[in-house]
């Protein structure tokens, strides 16, 4: 109980960060499930969402800035897929991955150019930046809101995938790309929908994440992006509940490690976890076993 009490702030922070990672991780896991592509640019899309919010809220009221950020991020995700990944659909997987790395490089340099290399202060969003006290630990409202919002969004997403027609198409495409094409599924619109959902969730994650961190720099998307990807692998790539659980585990563990005074290793821990899971159970917690055909 003492341990719990002493570490409560860290656990709370962990749950909150975990929720934010979960929202990013869904973008990775859905894209991987359908295109078998590690979308290296996803973390940078998340960073761009943060920057758009900063510039938007500087000139317009919040109730316009928030939806505008979401729209711009979604458009960005859509355009990236159309311009950088679609022409390479029949190319080897490695070229698509290289293209993703190229996009990530471009977005980071673009952000560097626009910001002039200065770190930009994130605007305080009223209410979610207020502080509250839970069980004697003071924290921001965003910490409490994040896991709830994450769960709501994930449930909505799972329902979307299970119940709607486009969700069914997504499941079919992730099972078998070619066959679903033969069955008359418009593959391009399914893939676009995937990127749109991923970017939408990344935009929501950016509101929550940057409210806690206050500053955005061109590289601030890289680390959360990589960690979210690890979460997706941990939970079994292609599985949405897996990604969410993986993200919460990583968020909590990372913050407990920080609480123990090993901050240097909080990032390294994530990757150590990744390597262990890849070696022990490469399909992750809920991943499906893919058999290799000769």
């Amino acid at each position: 109980m003492d341990f719990l009490h002493a570490n409560l702030p860290y656990i709370l922070a962990g749950i909150s960060v975990g929720g934010q990672y979960a929202l990013i991780a869904i973008g990775y896991t859905m894209v991987y499930g359908i295109l078998r592509l590690i979308n290296f640019a996803h973390g940078d899309v998340f960073m761009i969402a943060g920057l758009v919010m900063i510039y938007a809220s500087a000139t317009m009221p919040l109730y316009i800035a928030l939806p505008l950020t979401v729209i711009v991020t979604v458009l960005l995700g859509f355009v990236i897929e159309r311009v950088a990944y679609k022409p390479l659909r029949s190319a080897p997987r490695m070229s698509v991955m290289i293209s993703a790395i190229g996009v990530s490089y471009l977005l980071q340099n673009l952000a560097l150019y626009v910001t002039g290399g200065l770190s930009k202060m994130y605007p305080t969003i009223p209410w979610i930046s207020d502080s509250i006290t839970i069980f004697g630990a003071t924290t921001k409202v965003v910490t409490v809101i994040t896991p709830i919002l994450t769960l709501v969004l994930v449930i909505a997403l799972v329902l979307f995938i299970q119940k709607t027609k486009i969700g069914m198409a997504m499941r079919a495409v992730s099972k078998d790309f070619e066959t679903s094409q033969l069955m008359g599924i418009k593959i391009n619109s399914v893939i676009s929908a995937t990127f749109i959902i991923g970017s939408l969730l990344a935009a929501v994650a950016s509101f929550l994440y940057f409210s806690n961190y206050a500053a955005v720099v061109p590289t601030s998307g890289a680390m959360p992006g990589l960690k979210a990807f690890v979460a997706a692998v941990f939970g079994g790539i292609g599985s949405i509940p897996g990604a969410v659980i993986g993200a919460f585990i990583i968020g909590i563990c990372e913050n407990i490690i920080k609480g123990l005074g090993w901050t240097t290793f909080s990032d390294a821990f994530t990757f150590a976890l990744l390597i262990i899971i890849l070696i022990v159970k490469p399909t992750g917690l809920f991943g499906e076993r893919a058999s290799e055909k000769v």
Binding site: R36, M97, V230, L274, P282
Partner: peptide, 15 residues
């Protein structure tokens, strides 16, 4: 490990 898993694992080790 295979292709992209290898990529992400080596990236992880570098970190």
């Amino acid at each position: 490990l295979k292709s992209d898993y290898l990529a992400i694992a080596t990236l992880g080790f570098a970190e």
